[in-house]
Structures are given as structure tokens and as C-alpha cells.
Amino acid sequence: MYRKQVRRRRAILVVLVVACLMLISISISEADDGPLHSVQTGVSTVLSPVGEGAGRALKPARDLIDWFDETWQARGENEDLRDQVAELRAELLETQDAAEKAGYAEKLDELMNDGGLTGYTPVAATVTSRSPSLWYESIKISAGSSDGVSRNDAVITDDGLIGRIANVTGGTSEVALITDGEGGVAARVAGKGPEGLVSGVVGNPGRLDLSLIQGEKDIKDGDKLVTAGFTTETGLASLYPADIPIGEVVETIPAEQEQREQVNVEPFADLADLTDVTVLTSGGG
């Protein structure tokens, strides 16, 4: 009897492992519009409202945690500041939402006008969910194809670029963040400096890496990086419009013995704490 149980247990385990490996294999080998991806998109479309509803329902709990987090950080400051924070907190909580929204809109207008992005139609969205691991950096937002969002549209905040649309359903979209290890962004140092490829550093969401640097000019700490937005003579074009702020160079390690120069970049946008985002829907991109 016991041997039979062991055999059955092993058989179930083998079946499950094989099923996992088959799913992984099919998912990687098939095209984006293949049957497995279609099923996944279908399930995602059906479950998205549930996830979105849960995200909304749990927002007060997240805000509470944020409040405790802010309080904990404030403990590190001196006594005077703590008193001030305590007095202003009630007032701050009431006005924070309105101020954030107004400030966000103002900075976003500035960013779009300065960056020559007026040819794009901005679609506002909120973050509804986030992947649970640093290995796969993606978020879901509350705007989809019904809002005019398409695959590969650039996604920004008032601070700068955060990623691109990876998948779209009717009312939601999945955004692959620039810190995701699977993609890169063509970038250049603001002021027509050297160009290169910005990519994420797996496991460290607060850092980007500038590689494949082209150009003679030196890159210095404090240099600002923006999207290059290139178009080649053969018609190959960058996914991102030009001149969207990406981040600031925080460390340059000079090349030694033919190794490439290492340039560490800190993104302008706080990718660990995203709430409101804007999708630049195609006006040419």
C-alpha cells in the first residue's frame, strides 16, 4: 500500500515537472500571437478587473504602510524636524493627493514641451499591480487598447522615462520597466554628448548601466542621459522618442586594459514607488 502511494506521488511530481518544462518551452519558442500567449492574454483579460479591484481595495492598506514607513524614516531626523513633521502631517495628508496630481501635470507638461513630445498623445494611467520579483521588472497599468495604447508605446512619469508597453489588453497594459534585464534603451548624454545603450542591472532596481558607448567626449559624474531616439537610413528606428530624460551618471569607472568603461546611472524616476504614469501614444512613435 505504502509503495503504491510513493509511486503515485512520484508520478504526479514527474507529470507536474514535465508540464512546467513544456509550458516554458512552448512559451519561449512560439510567436507572440501563438496559442499559449493567446490563452495567457485571455486569462489575463478576464482576471485583470479582479486584480484591479483588489489593488484598489488594498490601496488604503498600502497607504497605511507608506505612512508608517514615512514615520519610521522621520525618526532619524532631529527633534525639531520631528515636531514639525508631526504638526504638518495632518495638513499634508489632506493636501498631498491634490498637490501631487497638480504638480505631476505641471511637470509633465514641461517635460513634453521641452522634449518636443507634443506630437504624442499622453494617456494618463495608474499602476494597478507589480511583479513580485526583482528578476522580472514589470507593472500593470489601468489603460489599454481602448484608450489608444499600443505595444511598444513609451511610458513616462513627470520625472522621465520608466519603460515601454510590453502587452496590451482592452483596459489594461503591461509595462516592461527600463530596469528589466531583457531590454535596452538607446541613450545619449544631454547636449549632444556620446551615445550608448542603457540597460537594467538584475537585482538592483535603483541602477542602470550605460554600455556600447560611441563618441569621443568623456562621460562625467552628473551628466544627464536622455533617450537618443535615432532613425537610421535603412528605416530602423528607436522605440522611444528622443529627449526623454532617463537618469544621471553617478559613477564612471575608467577603462583598464581594453576593458570597456563602466558607467553607472541612477534613473530619475523612482521605479520602486510608481503610482501615476503617462503613456505616449503614437503620434508618430
Binding site: 515537472v17 512546467c20 516554458i24 512559451s27 495567457q40 489575463s44 482576471l47 485583470s48 511583479s131
Partner: peptide, 18 residues
């Protein structure tokens, strides 16, 4: 279920959690 909801590669999270 997780992979379906967040758009991850199906089977990866399953294998780890299994």
C-alpha cells in the same frame, strides 16, 4: 495563476512554487 495575471513566462513560477 500568478504568471497568467502578471504576464510572466508560464511554468517558471509554477516550478519554483511546486
Amino acid at each position: 495563476l500568478l504568471d497568467a495575471m502578471i504576464g510572466g513566462t508560464p511554468g517558471v513560477a509554477s516550478l519554483a512554487l511546486m
